[in-house]
Design a protein around this nucleic acid. Structure first.
Lengths: 257, 257
DNA sequence: GGTTTGCTGTCCATAATGTGGACAGAATTG
DNA sequence: CAATTCTGTCCACATTATGGACAGCAAACC
């Protein structure tokens, strides 16, 4: 039962749009033009918003590069909340165990708005590990393996809506609405998502989804490994392990609160 | 060299004002009326702002109590930044060592706007410990022992300005502009701040300040203990230890970046 | 060295946006 | 069941935020 629109706050909504784009830029930040492109706002508007946010300490500007990034006051506001989310708490042990069993790096990714956000990473024991994605990494839903998995876990019309909304941002990741939609369809049929060409060359990823007690997608577990380590046979094995882990986390969430 | 005003963003500034008030309410949150009182905005305006922020996931509303609190998306945005601030990194070891030497609970508190924010806490070894203040606790500058210490570390006019700005909020903490100003004067003379009656009954606090390389106040270290444990002699001892710790942290900050 | 390209920053007339007084419901209290 | 205290909603109005147009600056190109 989602409450419908609400007006009288265009500026605030726009500011948040900007913030979310900046968040995707992590420490390095994002140049103004890119924010303009990603938000669809005009340049003077973005400029004004960003500079007010700087005055307020919510955004920082890197002197050298001129890029804009999330400022120091955001973590300060975040301190007002209990430190670990219920999902993170529920997943903790299970991820640790699963990461040991698999030996490759595991990622826990949630949906936030139209983005995916990596909230946990467990490094495996195998000597070659894919570490490109870090905790805090944020990308448009549909771009990453986890993103496709999460989209595959929701009703097709909903997924379609999100993918369309992200269309403008896909360009930067060399993908398209059509590609993403077909990936979602494939993942739905398979029961998990598989990505042959990861964001890093020569890697392969496999994601399963986690749903909340009310059956809405909550997160995804992803394994990333160098391609040679995920042949057809091992793919089956790993998929089963991840599906198991996802189920275990779902159960734990139900039992906790 | 602070850049001067900037207009065209009243709404955004107001939203942030609201957010900061909500942050002070931590997990329990704040009722609408209190936000109205603290911000000086009208009720319809606050109501609108808060509800837009709810739609955006930045604010949450507790079903039972109807109170408003910082929402789950704020920590998500915070993930875009490196996890530990330079100050926290610099203070880490020194706080641990000092906490051992003193035996009572230590707090590290920073200034953020017109508030103090507790960003670290080290529990001591002595069997009776004052734990009332938690990491994330946020109060108007001037209300807590650490707040007075930080104000004492800045030029009097600056401090006076902040204290005046906080006047409306002091009522809720049973203090006043005059009281705070006299406490600041006392702390300045003494070189550290002493508070006989802590926020919790029967406790006593002692705070020293930490300055950044450019000599602006950055933070405060506070010891809180039951009153009987901080007699005149021990007060001297503890003060010296804290002053030493503050100096050590200042040096470490300079050496790091 | 000119000129083109790609970026950031600023102005200001304009209309769309956010505002807040007034009204209403809901819950608690005496 | 009036009185009080909270939250939520409406809508006429003017204050606020908007964005087209202009400007500066650096790097890349000819």
């Amino acid at each position: 039962m989602t409450t419908e629109p609400r007006q009288g706050a265009q500026a605030i909504r726009r500011a948040l749009m900007v913030l979310r784009i900046l968040a995707a830029g992590r420490e390095t930040g994002v140049p103004l033009t890119e924010v303009v492109q990603a938000t669809g706002l005009t340049r003077p508007t973005v400029h004004r918003i960003v500079h007010v946010l700087i005055e307020e300490g919510i955004v920082e500007r890197h002197e050298k590069t001129g890029r804009y990034a999330i400022g120091g006051q955001v973590p300060e506001l975040a301190l007002a909340r209990p430190s670990r989310s219920p999902l993170l708490a529920a997943a903790d042990n299970i991820l640790a165990r699963t990461s040991q069993r698999v030996g490759d790096t595991l990622f826990l990714t949630v949906r936030t708005g139209n983005d995916t956000l990596c909230i946990d990473r467990r490094i495996g024991s195998y000597p070659i590990q894919v570490l490109s994605i870090e905790v805090g990494a944020r990308r448009p839903l549909g771009v990453s393996s986890a993103g496709v998995a999460i989209l595959a876990a929701m009703p097709t019309p909903d997924a379609r809506k999100i993918v369309t909304a992200n269309e403008v941002r896909f360009a930067g990741y060399r993908t398209s609405v059509a590609t993403v939609l077909s990936q979602i369809a494939l993942a739905k049929r398979r029961g998990y998502n598989l990505r042959e060409a990861g964001l890093v060359q020569g890697t392969k990823s496999l994601s399963t989804w986690i749903k909340t007690p009310d059956r809405r997608p909550a997160a995804a577990i992803t394994v990333s490994a160098v391609r040679t380590r995920l042949g057809p046979r091992r793919e089956q094995e790993v998929a089963e392990i991840l599906l198991e882990a996802a189920l275990a986390i779902e159960k734990k969430i139900e039992s906790l609160p």
